[in-house]
Every structure is written in structure tokens, then in C-alpha cells.
């Protein structure tokens, strides 16, 4: 930087130079980096989730209803059962009647009524079908109730409840192991839950198809099958509901009604209007 001249005075050999521009900054545009990262992580998450799902399906196929009842049965034993709810006995009779067509399952399936104003029904691991009091108040015919029960039986038949449980556990464990607490788990978790909802929608469609076939076996026709759906608030789906379909665990109600009609036509089921009263 400096030099000496013979007389001892200062010699300015300092050459001011500007630093080469942006030497410490990479040339990649942040938007392209964002796109690459999101695409890469999305693909990796779907591969992991898909692999996990296959594994879970393999395991669940070996879990028989009896084994399932042994493992999970005790979990729901002491739930309070509101047997004096309106139509609860009818529901129980219908379930036994439907189970005549599936003789192997009769021992392991029970009905429970939950006190809840929201009309809902679900299948619990261990062989319990839960129906809410709200649903029992809203049904208008035996056929309609039979369809709802048969739909839940469809879930048991396809082992959907076990698969859903297993997949949820598998996905969470895998993501936790791979990602840890790096702070970036929002993206893989979101993608995994979107994939999960896709599986779930397929399962609902399978259960609907099974229920339609069982209804036909029981009554000889499938009238009343879609009455429950028609009463749901989103039966006339607006744009928002269709847009949200991809985020939903159930297919859009409008398409479920349409699918039922289509399946009835395809299998040649008769749609009668004389439904049995409760």
C-alpha cells in the first residue's frame, strides 16, 4: 500500500479499488430457488407418504376383525350409551338386519349412540359404529338410516378406519424423524395432509358404493339412499365449496349424490319411492 521514497517523505502508492460487485451473493433468482425447493420437497413428501401408505395397507390386510376387536375393543367400553334416544332401537335392529348379509362380522360390530346435535356417523377401530342423536332425529325413513349404517359398514369392510389411523401415525412419525424441529416442517406437513385427504375422499366413495350394494341386497331397491346427503347444507354446492373440494376429507356432496345415481344406473338397481317408515 505504501512505498518509501529516498527523501523519507511519503509516497502515495495506494490505489483505491472498488470491490468486485456481488462477489458474496449468488446469482440465483430467489423466485427460481423458491420454485425448485417447493417442487423438490413436494415430490419427496409424496414419495414418503405414498411409501408409508403402501406399508400400512400391507400391515392392515393382516389384521382380522377379531384381532382388531381385541386390540381396540377395550378403548371404547366405558363410553356412555344413550339407549333411550329416539330411534336408537330401530338403528340397532337395522344394523343386525344388515349384518345378516355379512355373517362373519356380526360378532365384532356394535352400535353406539352419541349425544350430539350434529348429524354424524363414524366407524371406530374395534368394531363400533357410532351414530349421533342428531342424525337419528333427522332421518325420515328406514332406508335412509340403513344407507348411513351400511356406509359405515363399508368403512369396516375396506378397513378404512385402521388404514387412516395407521397412515396418520406413519406420516407423523416419518416427518418427525426426517425433519425434526428445523422450522420448515410446514410445507411437508401441508402436502402430506392434502394427500391424506385425497385418500380419504376415495375411501368415502368406496364406502358409498358398498352401502348402495348392501341396501339393494336388504330391500331390493336403493330408494332413499341419497336422502341424507340432500339434507346436508352443501347439497347445492357453490363455487367456494367446489374450490375447497381438494382440501376436504369427503367428496363434494353434490357429486356424491350424482355418483350414487350413476352407480344405481350402472348396476341396474331399482330406485323405489315407497320407503319404510321408522
Amino acid at each position: 500500500m505504501t512505498g518509501r521514497d529516498p527523501s523519507g517523505g511519503p509516497t502515495e502508492r495506494f490505489e483505491p479499488r472498488l470491490p468486485p460487485d456481488e462477489i458474496n451473493v449468488g446469482p440465483t433468482h430467489p423466485l427460481s430457488e423458491l420454485a425448485t425447493l417447493i417442487a423438490g420437497i413436494a415430490v419427496a413428501t409424496l414419495v414418503v407418504v405414498g411409501g408409508g401408505a403402501l406399508l400400512v395397507d400391507g400391515v392392515v390386510a393382516h389384521v382380522s376383525p377379531e384381532l382388531e376387536a381385541r386390540i381396540f375393543g377395550s378403548l371404547f367400553e366405558d363410553e356412555t350409551d344413550a339407549s333411550d334416544v329416539l330411534h336408537a332401537d330401530t338403528a340397532r335392529d337395522l344394523l343386525s338386519s344388515l349384518l345378516r348379509h355379512e355373517p362373519g362380522r356380526a360378532q365384532t360390530l356394535r352400535l353406539r349412540v352419541a349425544l350430539d346435535d350434529d348429524p354424524n356417523a363414524f366407524a371406530l377401530p374395534g368394531g363400533t359404529v357410532v351414530v349421533t342423536s342428531g342424525l337419528l332425529e333427522q332421518v325420515e325413513s328406514r332406508n335412509e338410516l340403513a344407507f348411513v349404517l351400511a356406509h359405515e359398514l363399508g368403512h369396516f369392510e375396506g378397513r378404512h378406519h385402521l388404514r387412516g389411523l395407521g397412515r396418520m401415525v406413519m406420516v407423523h412419525l416419518t416427518l418427525l424423524a426426517l425433519v425434526g424441529a428445523s422450522g420448515g416442517e410446514a410445507l411437508p406437513t401441508t402436502i402430506a395432509s392434502l394427500a391424506e385427504r385425497g385418500f380419504s375422499r376415495d375411501q368415502e366413495r368406496e364406502a358409498d358404493a358398498y352401502a348402495l350394494a348392501l341396501l339393494n341386497l336388504e330391500y331390493g331397491h336403493v330408494g332413499g339412499a341419497d336422502h341424507f346427503f340432500r339434507k346436508l347444507p352443501d347439497a347445492d354446492a357453490g363455487f367456494a365449496r367446489h374450490a375447497a373440494a381438494y382440501l376436504s376429507t369427503h367428496p363434494v356432496t353434490e357429486s356424491r349424490i350424482a355418483d350414487l345415481a350413476e352407480a344405481a344406473r350402472a348396476h341396474g338397481y331399482r330406485v323405489a319411492t315407497d320407503l319404510e317408515p321408522l
Binding site: E22, N24, V25, G26, T28, P30, E33, L34, L37, I38, G40, I41, V179, S182, G183, G184, E185, A186, L187, P188
Partner: peptide, 23 residues
């Protein structure tokens, strides 16, 4: 920048969004 860095935290590699900041 924080979001990009969070994604990098999963995959690893240069956190380019921070490089310009520190420079």
C-alpha cells in the same frame, strides 16, 4: 427470506436468501 431459509433448513445447502442480507 425467512420462509426460503426454512425450506433450506429441510434440504440443506447454501441459504442464498441470507447471503445477500449479510453482504
Amino acid at each position: 427470506k425467512r420462509f426460503l431459509a426454512g425450506l433450506r433448513g429441510l434440504v440443506g445447502g447454501r441459504v442464498k436468501s441470507y447471503e445477500s442480507l449479510l453482504d
